[in-house]
């Protein structure tokens, strides 16, 4: 029943942590892959897999920049992702009768 109303892309512990962490930033801010990895506590490989799923759904965007020697990947929640988290949170509230 819960699986029917809760977005399956977000309703996974690791991806919920990723989306909630990025949502704590002001709209439009981006976070480096390294800092996100430190905050979530995942291996780079695992994190990439989850980020790709969220990016494929349009929930987040990523950007790779390079200054010649070092390349930095940054990620940000999109408006679509923020809205999806809002809908997910509301669905949780409805299921639990208020958080």
């Amino acid at each position: 029943m819960a699986d029917d109303v809760l977005d399956p892309l977000i309703h996974v512990p690791t991806r919920l942590k990723i989306v909630a962490t990025l949502a704590a930033l002001p709209d439009g801010d981006t976070l480096s892959f390294t800092r996100l990895q430190n905050m979530i506590g995942l291996t780079p490989g695992n994190l990439i897999i989850h980020l790709r799923k969220l990016e494929d759904a349009g929930y987040l965007s990523s950007k790779k920049t390079s200054n010649g020697t070092v390349s930095i990947t940054t990620v940000a929640l999109t408006g679509h992702g923020r809205a999806a988290l809002g809908t997910y949170t509301q669905a949780l509230r409805d299921l639990l009768g208020g958080l």
């Binding site: 809760l6 309703h11 996974v12 512990p13 995942l42 490989g45 989850h50």
Partner: peptide
């Protein structure tokens, strides 16, 4: 547990 494997197909 928040370290659920990424290879679980993304299921909750």
């Amino acid at each position: 547990d928040t370290t659920t494997s990424a290879g679980n197909g993304g299921n909750g």
